[in-house]
Design a binder for these strands. Structure first.
Lengths: 250, 250
DNA sequence: CGATACATTGAGGTTTATCAATTTGTGTGG
DNA sequence: CCACACAAATTGATAAACCTCAATGTATCG
């Protein structure tokens, strides 16, 4: 299963706990500003630290399965995680790819409504739901932050719905690459080249296409000089304007 | 545009303000328990009433357009509203149908991320965003309620994504009819027969299909004796178990 | 009751899926 | 470090699902 690149230690180390003059390890977390955790003042971070457990996954590891009781929520500090749902005959829909700073488990339910599996090596902070709920009662900013994140996820879901319902294969691929680029930028990583840590199959299951169609479409973009494929599972966007036009359906 | 049935006054009246021994009109609202408004105690309802404006729409009326500054949020008290996004060439994705008790505008953005149009005659309560935000600060239950609603909408969005990405036309139609049935039941309306107030075209744009495919698929369900079409834009589910199996992809 | 929009049905085309073969990439062990 | 084994990606040929275009039937509303 692990056909993945070795962990990028430079990135992994960003979220490692580093004790700094008695402050909470969270204070040193380099993705804090991206995460739920930004809701708390630096002084309150030890309360957060007290209720979390850090955990690592290797590529291919399952974090939880659809249908399990949802006792925990997670904050991803590095790597890439995929969420997916299955139909009885094995058809799979990847509902999202998560990266550093992203939160797992906002969707309300007693049980997980999707499975979560590591795409690359992954580091995360685990919170027991009830403990986080309790912390929300004393720190209202935390609740506000979660509401804000939920709203943002709703906006993204609408985009995904439009893409799946009405865009062509080419438009979906362009949208997807641009989305990964935008999200990398939001994490203070370069917008270009765009890293695609997931397999063609995963991309297909995210876009409602087959592996073959994903591959053919990417090839077509490459042959038209709109993108180029780099060696290390990343893509350079040569003509961003054209990509935007394709993605938006012009 | 208004090819719609005349308003169902029995339902409309459920949300009409009725002054009852000095209580807020909200206290008499029959869909309160379904709506955001259930977050407030009866005694606090006049605060809610103070910041809302009631409004009616006829079938075909536009509530707001994608891209407009999003100053208001709404609570639907009767009728059916559709939300949709457009691509430049006119392709349309209906992202949701809303009914009594549903909230419009949870998705976070300065501008509306979709257009909203009345499918039938509609009644709603309008809140200016900043006023509701302000009320949230004094009534924390309101914020909790909104977070809960956002989470629930996220769960539904995941289902919609699975449907659009991986289900066949037949499975989508079955899922759709059952969803309308479930939601009717949640509003204390009969689960069967299921009312389909929207056009085949709207259904197609919701399911990522064409009018013709929707029509053909519904015909196929009817000819197989799984559903029957009643006169008044409603459908009786003759074999609910079969429908469930189809919808889930068995 | 007539006009118009909506729904249904039919014939044929297009996109994407499926099945199959080949090439490329990746990790392992010698 | 190289060779091997296996997984993933690409490419090709064919098929199926759904779309498009067109005609007909049926509600609905003035």
């Amino acid at each position: 299963m692990s056909r993945e690149e070795k962990p990028n230690t430079a990135i992994l180390s960003r979220a490692l706990p580093r004790k700094k003059q008695g402050l909470s390890p969270c204070a040193a977390c380099e993705v804090r500003h991206l995460a739920v955790c930004s809701a708390l003042k630096t002084d309150d971070l030890d309360e957060l630290d007290a209720i979390l457990t850090r955990r690592d996954l290797s590529a291919g590891d399952t974090l939880f399965d659809e249908g399990e009781p949802a006792r925990n929520v997670y904050n991803l500090t590095s790597g890439c995680l995929k969420l997916y749902k299955l139909l009885p005959d094995g058809r799979r829909q990847v509902t999202g790819f998560l990266f550093a700073g992203d939160f797992v488990g906002l969707a309300n339910s007693d049980d997980y409504i999707y499975s979560a599996e590591a795409v690359t090596q992954v580091a995360l902070c685990r919170f027991e739901k009830h403990k986080l709920d309790h912390l929300m009662n004393t720190h209202l900013s935390l609740e506000k932050r979660l509401l804000g994140m939920a709203r943002f996820e709703l906006v993204e879901a609408q985009e995904q719905i439009l893409m799946l319902g009405r865009k062509t294969a080419m438009e979906r691929i362009a949208s997807f690459i641009l989305m990964l680029s935008d999200r990398a930028q939001r994490r203070d990583e370069p917008a270009d080249p765009v890293k695609l840590p997931m397999s063609r199959n995963d991309i297909g299951d995210y876009l409602g296409l087959t592996t073959e169609t994903v591959s053919r479409t990417i090839t077509r973009l490459r042959k038209n000089g709109i993108i180029s494929l780099d060696s290390d599972r990343s893509i350079t966007i040569k003509q961003r304007e054209t990509m935007n036009d394709i993605a938006e359906g012009f």
